[in-house]
Amino acid sequence: METEPLTPVAPHRVRCSFSEQGWSDVVFVHWPCAERDIAPLLPPRTRPDLFDGTAWVGVVGLGMSVRSPLPARFAELNVRTFAVDERGRRGLVFFSLEASHPGFVRVARAVGRLPYRSAAVECTKTATETAYRVERSGVGLGLRVRRGGRIAPTGADRFLTERWRMFSTWYRWPIEVPVAHEPWALDSAELLDFTDAGLLAEFGLAPPSRPVVRFASRVDARFGLPVPL
Rank of each mutant, 00 (worst) to 15 (best):
A119Q: 03
G103Y: 12
E98G: 06
R133I: 05
Y116G: 11
A108D: 04
A127R: 11
L92K: 00
H101C: 09
R73V: 09
V59Y: 01
P69S: 10
V66L: 13
G53L: 01
R73E: 08
R73C: 05
A75P: 03
D49H: 14
T128N: 11
A72K: 07
V105L: 04
R67C: 11
G63S: 10
E86R: 13
K125T: 12
V134W: 00
P102R: 08
R45I: 14
R109N: 15
C123K: 10
F74T: 03
A55L: 10
F82G: 01
R87H: 15
P102V: 10
V59E: 00
V59P: 00
P102L: 11
F74E: 05
R90I: 06
M64Q: 11
R67L: 10
T126G: 15
R67Q: 15
K125V: 13
E76I: 00
L41E: 13
W56F: 14
E122R: 04
D49P: 10
R80I: 00
E122W: 08
V93P: 05
P102D: 07
F104A: 05
A75E: 12
K125D: 06
R80D: 03
D85H: 00
R109H: 14
A131S: 10
F104I: 04
G53R: 01
G88L: 12
T124A: 13
V57N: 02
G112M: 10
G103T: 12
T46L: 14
E98H: 14
L97K: 02
A127L: 15
S68A: 14
F104L: 07
W56D: 04
E86Y: 07
Y116P: 03
L77K: 01
K125R: 15
F51G: 07
S118K: 09
D52N: 09
F95Y: 06
P115E: 05
R117E: 08
G103C: 12
V84G: 01
A120H: 15
A131Y: 05
A83S: 09
V93A: 02
A39K: 13
F74H: 06
E122Q: 13
G112S: 13
R90Y: 05
V79A: 02
W56R: 04
L70V: 09
H101M: 11
R117T: 09
A131K: 07
A72W: 09
P69E: 11
S96H: 04
Y132P: 00
R117P: 08
